[in-house]
Design a protein around this nucleic acid. Structure first.
Ligand SMILES: [Zn+2]
Ligand SMILES: [Zn+2]
Ligand SMILES: [Zn+2]
Ligand SMILES: [Zn+2]
Lengths: 133, 133
DNA sequence: CGCGACATGTAATGATATTACATTGCGAAG
DNA sequence: CTTCGCAATGTAATATCATTACATGTCGCG
């Protein structure tokens, strides 16, 4: 595990590159359309690649958008808990993490006997640039 | 605004009651099926009611499930930020809020000039009961 | 009554995701 | 080398979630 870029299959590489080149989140079907020229024909080709990439931590799913982004920090994977700030105007996504937030949510889980598997934090709003306009 | 239960229309009341009686989140189509006997025929009847109920704060949308729950605290809705702990085994949802988390995410937004409109926090995992089993 | 505002009814379509099954590529075991 | 097993891939069909478009109903108010 902890796969490097070299371990990726052709389809996984194509999907990851598509996300990396994009300026914002892409839906699975948008990825599919962008890869038609590379032989992609069916949604499953995209979803299967995404599934692996999500497992590798190279891609994140934005639940509130039903879309996907390449990880902004694929190296320093301190990925215990990630938060996303999503601009509704320009689509830009900012990925960050906060130790205090992680600690507080962890404390709630401990207090309530809840075994957390995955935490989603998504802030929808307007980025600095778009808010100015 | 700040609508009370009395202000609700028939369809809104039916949808809210369905959610309140359910033991967990329901998808829009599940709500539709449960209301066929009351004359519901089309998804839009559910989605329109949900849209209003979400606005009133009587219902929450769980982004990671594409499903909806009745608010657990429809009265003391001082919480500007709500978090959900969702059990993947039994479907139970626990709704809570944390002032420190709100403050930290607010601080990040302020630091980055981001104007937050809506924040989603969802923890997927296993509740105390199910984790024991 | 005549109008406007809002809720509702109905059909069609669009968008997102999964199931099922066949096939291919490739390294390990024999 | 051949066969086996496994993971990836290809393809079609289907399931699930959500919206658009347009017609109709209801009710308060001038
Ligand atoms: Zn990341
Ligand atoms: Zn922006
Ligand atoms: Zn609530
Ligand atoms: Zn449970």
């Amino acid at each position: 595990m902890n796969a490097t870029h070299q371990d990726l299959t052709r389809n996984q590489t194509l999907v990851l590159d598509t996300l990396a080149k994009a300026d914002g989140p892409l839906s699975a079907y948008t990825i599919l359309d962008r890869l038609r020229g590379d032989g992609f024909r069916a949604p499953l080709q995209v979803y299967r690649a995404l599934e692996k990439l999500l497992g590798f931590g190279l891609v994140h799913r934005l639940e509130s958008l039903n879309a996907f982004v390449a990880c902004a920090h694929p190296h320093c994977h301190a990925h215990g808990l990630i938060a996303f700030a999503i601009c509704e105007d320009c689509g830009q996504v900012d990925e960050f993490s906060d130790a205090v937030v992680r600690e507080r949510l962890g404390a709630w889980s401990a207090d309530n006997g809840f075994k957390a598997e995955k935490t989603t934090i998504e802030i929808r709003g307007h980025c600095a640039n778009c808010a100015a306009a």
